[in-house]
Design a protein around this nucleic acid. Sequence first.
DNA 1: ATGAAAGCGCTAACAT
DNA 2: ATGTTAGCGCTTTCAT
Lengths: 363, 363
Amino acid sequence: MRRLDEVRGMATLPDVAQHAGVSTATAARALGGYGSVRESTRQRVLDAAEVLGYRPNVLARSMITGSTQTIGVVISDIENPFFRRSLRGITDTARSRGFEVLLANTDEELEKERSAVSLLAARRVDGMVVCPADAGDRKHLREVIASGTPIVLLDRRVSGLAADTVGIDNRKAARLATERLLSLGHERIAIVTGGTPEIRERLVRPDMRGVERLSATTVGSRAAGYRDALTAAGITMRPEYFSANGFRREDAVSEVHLLMDLPQPPTAILAFDSIQSLGALQCFRERSIRCPEHVSLLGFDDAEWADLVSPPLTVVTQPMYEIGVAACERLLDRIGGEQRSPVHDRLPTVFVERSSIGPPTHG
Amino acid sequence: MRRLDEVRGMATLPDVAQHAGVSTATAARALGGYGSVRESTRQRVLDAAEVLGYRPNVLARSMITGSTQTIGVVISDIENPFFRRSLRGITDTARSRGFEVLLANTDEELEKERSAVSLLAARRVDGMVVCPADAGDRKHLREVIASGTPIVLLDRRVSGLAADTVGIDNRKAARLATERLLSLGHERIAIVTGGTPEIRERLVRPDMRGVERLSATTVGSRAAGYRDALTAAGITMRPEYFSANGFRREDAVSEVHLLMDLPQPPTAILAFDSIQSLGALQCFRERSIRCPEHVSLLGFDDAEWADLVSPPLTVVTQPMYEIGVAACERLLDRIGGEQRSPVHDRLPTVFVERSSIGPPTHG
DNA sequence: ATGAAAGCGCTAACAT
DNA sequence: ATGTTAGCGCTTTCAT
């Protein structure tokens, strides 16, 4: 009775139409719920569809309508607490609005980002949420936007790109965190940024020229906030307290070791994300350094384990899930045709004081 | 010069063909790298594509070839360490083989699983990796498989389903873990399963009937392994030591509170996943229970924080990433046309002893 | 309210 | 080696 159905288990619109004794156009109208169809006909078509186990071919539909009801998400690493929580916000929101999510990891590598973006574009996603690599050119993003596919930037702002951005005020958050450390009496404060040596280079030169340009990146902004606080307190920034040698946990571990090996090791460390915090904690454990007695640790992002490590970590919290939600909503609005010029949402951060910071021990 | 390009930024094959002065077929061949094309023509086409910023429409291609080069992943929660690590294994593998990943969360809700699977099927994914909800019917999975789309089961085995499975030997792993606790002298061992009350009901009845059927689920298998060890040691399982009231951290926290409120609280707890471990740890902290002095804790899955919480957690490790890789490879093989009957991969677990377990304190 | 027919952008025979 | 010609399954005018 139904040929195609037997081949690949798929009945098509013509099959349904024939079974219901109507034209494909009518069947499509009945199924798609548009146009006008007499109730009795409608029912007949629906029944036929039911009987045949008909499932519309979304691909064919997309080809015509031009919409795939799919968004692409390009992030550096799903395993990073910030991204995975945000991703959950994105997927939940997308889902509730009838969109699917295509996922791609970049591991902070520009090349992977490029190919991911290009592949997603080829898949005709209706839009993308991307957390752009901290440096490098943005031609690929620009092209996508130019071709009419909206992009919303997550976490990181890119100057000169016609894209909405959702994140926090990184500079301010870092300044506040640093100030808290300062108020405790710390003067030797190091930052473990998880950034790349290149970024570091531009940030540590005497005049700090280029900080403004770099404030387009998270690391740059936070480093700038750190500098703001130090400067205001009349403290000179020491290049050796500026660590930026990779975003992985192992990178952080070795960087903190280096820090603690310094003739004048820092009395406090500000970690720029939860992976870096974990690395610092691991280093402390390896050296039997007591925290906060020997050194204070303040981190970004309230990971699920932050209150259960020892000592419980004091953190600057970003509303990770909400950032994802907001980013997705912005994107969906754009996809829906919203026109206004790019907006940059800055969600509020919260300072959660636990016990990993305390007054410095000078020795 | 290029009409379509101006409308939606998209040049089509005919555009490229015309620009290169060849037929669409030739252009397609040159671009697709199949058939035979003279080198000079090839170059001309490629150049034209470059100039026009041509991007093949994957949808149109998929409609014909019937392959979308996309796999769907249906898991309960990306935020669970096990799933996110596995997901990374899946995406990395898929990527390297030219497949994209469509993601869906189910939160262990059968209804969400059904709709996710159905949506992915409608998107014509070439296959799916799914971690099925612990209970309920599997008609939706069966239908997908019947329609010719292969499914590989992650973590959980479902009897009577023609699908490959990749996971560990849960029963054995749980038995070994329990035996370790037993060898330390514990007799009052509780399990925090993260399962549902329904599953628990079936497992705690005196005769334990139904355990076999339930061994199709992770919780069921692990509970069975726990029972195996207890039985072999001549210890009667106490229903009150069997906790199953939700998979979330909060659930675990309150369950462990309940456990510790018992007239005879357990001297050791076996947590069935890292979220449950986190919950137990949190409860301990809330009650100032010292671990392992007051109670031992042994968990499944070596989350990134496991060695940094206090006390460092003793765990049974699953090769999470590798499980994802294996699942994806199996799936890709099936998609590639492999026929053999369903295989059930069981990857090896490793016992990592840290300091959260010790001899019981009888009091 | 319904049908006929023209595509969407591409691939795949089948010719040449 | 290249071109011609059907479609894939659906939506969408334009008739009727």
